[in-house]
Amino acid sequence: MKPVKRNEENRLDVVRRNDPFRSFFDEFESMFEDFFRPGFLSEYKDYPVAIHADVGEDDEKYMIKAALPGMKEDDIKVSVEDGVLVLRAERREEEKEEKKGYFRREIGYGKYERRFRLPDNVNLEKVDARYKNGILDIDLPKKEKGLSRKEIKVKGA
């Protein structure tokens, strides 16, 4: 499939202008701008497809809901590398069955990826991820206030 430029830039401009977390949750933006996304149901893609996600926060945590329809838990890998949360998913097996000359492929296969630069106050020890109804649900608890604060005593010469 040939990458086709999507007419989506205007929308992204609006989102970007109003997004105070641009510098944080934003590692993969260029993929949205430049590629038509083959998505989850198309049959072939030879480059990783960006995963769409909603990001929110409350007083205790940041929350990410990433759309990964039709996966199994084992297909999904979540890691934090140098302060960047990396979501990777890959559907390797092709469930293909030939019947009277027609190939039956249940859902598309391919690689999916998204990176989010995390704010400093995320408690990495307590990050939690669950998968249900095609949504990867990640909770990123915030460090307790004051935990990263340290007074430095100023000494005389």
Partner: peptide, 10 residues
Amino acid sequence: SFSRGRSLRS
């Protein structure tokens, strides 16, 4: 997506 808190990216 979020029943409470605020949305940062949608």
